[in-house]
């Protein structure tokens, strides 16, 4: 393990994540208004995240009869914690809170906790629709996890290191997105999928009345929804060190580049989200396993051959 995490950064990280999540929610409100043909003013969109959070803070909590409150509570709490821990290896500028030797795997392990979290919330609510939402996410998870892992591995192979800062350092000249576009696309898809968001929002879909979150009210819902956005932000931000050159870039300092690139990824995701419907599980599963997984394996193979050809390893 490396040195103890710098205190300043560890305090800064949650604040930054929340701020970016705020911006993402506001952008989402704007985009939703435009897609619906009922534009929302900037000022209204900007305060919407705070107002919704306040609404849920004031709101009463709620328990379902015969529900497993313990598991549901644990599940809800795990979501934001997992997002935060996953973000710990994220270089803010050139330095992450924790520069782990196996940082890429750490990120993967933390975000997999979302599986357990959503499932627990869906199960613990003691409601059929929540349960359907819960296991929809697991089906989805099984489908995105393999392409996601191969995308991560490809970036790690390109840098010949599992340390996120090494991956950034390897992109001083050429961003990885240019030499591994398939992995980048697979990663972006899995970003939305792991946050069960946008086209992958079936686990909390309207057809199951909010799915896993159907029975959540008050603070419980706030924690769940916030955790989901934090997960999206953390995962989208991870695309920057892995594929978009991290803090590398002219004129601006490294932290500014990371911020700009993260926001760009999020804006792209939000803009795309309102152009497309939700993807059904059974469609996605087959596509992911039959098309995306082989594609990412081939991508990993190509990158490995290139690295070997250049005398790596």
């Amino acid at each position: 393990m490396s040195a103890a995490p710098p205190l300043g950064l560890s305090i800064l990280l949650p604040i930054l994540l929340l701020a970016v999540a705020w911006a993402a929610v506001a952008a989402d409100v704007l985009a939703a208004g435009r897609a619906a043909g009922r534009p929302v003013p900037w000022a209204v969109a900007a305060v919407t995240p705070a107002r919704e959070a306040l609404r849920l803070l004031v709101g009463q909590r709620r328990r379902t009869v015969g529900g497993d409150e313990l598991l549901r509570g644990v599940g809800g709490a795990v979501l934001p914690i997992a997002a935060l821990l996953a973000a710990a290896v994220l270089p803010l500028g050139m330095r992450p809170v924790a520069d782990l030797g196996a940082g890429v795997v750490w990120f993967n392990a933390m975000e997999v906790f979302a599986w357990a979290a959503v499932w627990l919330v869906g199960w613990g609510s003691n409601s059929t629709l929540s349960l359907i939402g819960g296991y929809r996410f697991v089906a989805q998870g099984l489908a995105w996890e393999l392409p996601h892992m191969f995308a991560l591995i490809t970036a790690a192979v390109g840098a010949q290191s599992l340390r996120v800062t090494d991956v950034v350092a390897a992109q001083g000249g050429l961003w990885f997105v240019l030499i591994m576009p398939v992995a980048f696309v697979a990663f972006l898809l899995s970003v939305a999928a792991m946050a069960f968001w946008g086209p992958f929002s079936a686990p909390v879909g309207r057809d199951v009345a909010g799915g896993a979150a159907a029975e959540l009210a008050g603070v419980d819902r706030l924690v769940f929804v916030a955790g989901r956005w934090l997960l999206l932000v953390a995962a989208a931000a991870m695309a920057v060190p892995l594929f978009l050159g991290g803090g590398h870039g002219p004129w601006l300092p490294a932290w500014a580049w990371v911020l700009v690139k993260t926001l760009a990824v999020l804006v792209a995701l939000v803009a795309l989200r309102h152009r497309i419907p939700t993807i059904r599980m059974e469609r996605w599963t087959e596509f992911s396993l039959v098309v995306l997984t082989p594609a990412t394996i081939a991508q990993a193979l190509v990158v490995t051959l290139v690295v070997l050809g250049e005398g790596g390893f």
Partner: peptide, 26 residues
């Protein structure tokens, strides 16, 4: 059925009839 702000020990007793909905409107 929702938990009151200060949880009282009898918080769960209201479910006596046991006919709260399974899910939203279900």
């Amino acid at each position: 059925r929702a938990r009151p702000p200060d949880p009282s020990p009898g918080g769960r007793s209201h479910g006596d009839g046991g006919h709260d909905e399974l899910g939203p409107g279900e």
